[in-house]
């Protein structure tokens, strides 16, 4: 990975600021995405994660700051242009059509055809086989590429959307909360594909509010809070606990804990809540040893 560090990063955002009218959605945010690395963007609701995605994906421009792709300053007019530069975004709704077969979804908008003129038709066999192979290479074991994509589980659909972006030449993959609506096992499946994409040499921007999902796969962590960077850490500079505490706004948590205790003096039901809360806050600060990083 060291050789990629010397090259210009795939995506570099420097001191980005974005305003919606008088509201400052982002300010002073910098971000680098290198090939074969996963950059996690963490933050609670309203932290500016969505705005950041939209800037990188070419839907919005920075009002101030510099956006570079492979060392070259850019200003995208549309998400289409960003896509042409290899920056693919997988949104939460995944942009799939649930009644259509998996292979038709995989190639939707980029259909492969054979024949000329009025006889130009879909190369169905090629698309079916390619879908099967590509999904298999991403480690997705699909029953049947002819089944409507709506019959797949949430995690599988997410993986199809990722595999599609990878196949169509994405260099940078932006994943908008891919694990948010998933169960534990399914989230694990998606995290595994993020690792696969990374191993294939893609730069991944993984947006999430869950530090337990971010920590195992991330190489860099950018934490946002109310539109401002709260910290930018390499993996060896931070522990999972510190990440969780920062993410939740550790000091605010302790403050809340104290307030609950005060209120508990007059209300026994609240007392139990406060006790549990205190316990959790304590646990966050006690466990300092980082867990075994994934190989």
């Amino acid at each position: 990975m060291s050789d990629t560090m010397t090259e210009a990063p795939l995506v570099r955002l420097t001191d980005c600021e974005k305003r919606y009218g008088t509201i400052i959605a982002l300010t002073g945010v910098s971000l680098e995405v290198h090939a074969g690395e996963v950059t996690c963007v963490l933050g609670d609701n309203g932290a500016g994660k969505s705005t950041l995605i939209k800037v990188i994906a070419g839907m919005h421009h920075c009002d101030a700051g510099v956006y570079e792709v492979e060392g070259e300053r850019v200003r995208f007019a549309s998400p289409r242009e960003a896509l042409e530069r290899g920056i693919a975004t997988v949104y939460q709704d995944l942009a799939v059509v649930s009644l259509m077969p998996v292979w038709r979804n995989f190639f939707l908008g980029s259909e492969v055809r054979k024949g000329v003129g009025p006889l130009s038709r879909l190369d169905i066999r090629f698309m079916r086989e390619t879908t099967r192979t590509e999904l298999h290479n991403m480690g997705i074991d699909l029953r049947d590429v002819d089944q409507p994509i709506g019959t797949l589980s949430g995690g599988e659909r997410q993986c199809v959307a990722i595999a599609r972006a990878v196949y169509f030449g994405a260099k940078v993959l932006i994943l908008d909360e891919p694990t948010a609506a998933l169960g534990v096992k399914q989230a694990g499946v998606v995290l595994r594909y993020i690792m696969r994409a990374k191993e294939r040499g893609l730069g991944v921007v993984f947006i999430t509010h869950n530090p337990h999902h971010a920590y195992p796969v991330g190489d860099r962590f950018l934490i946002l809070n109310r539109g401002r960077p709260l910290g930018d850490f390499a993996r060896d500079e931070i522990t999972r606990e510190r990440l969780t505490a920062l993410m939740a706004g550790g000091e605010e948590l302790e403050q809340l804990s104290h307030e609950l205790e005060g209120a508990a003096a007059t209300d026994t039901a609240l007392g139990r809540v406060a006790e549990e809360f205190e316990h959790e806050v304590a646990e966050l600060s006690i466990r300092k040893t980082p867990p075994e990083p994934p190989a």
């Binding site: 709704d93 942009a95 059509v97 259509m100 038709r104 939707l108 908008g109 259909e111």
Partner: peptide, 24 residues
């Protein structure tokens, strides 16, 4: 069933915003 336009017809009817997002 056999052309790109057909694929697009199913897509715009099934999920218009998704279809637009992938360039239909």
């Amino acid at each position: 069933l056999r052309t790109r336009v057909g694929n697009w017809i199913f897509a715009v009817g099934g999920a218009q915003s998704s279809a637009r997002a992938v360039g239909v």
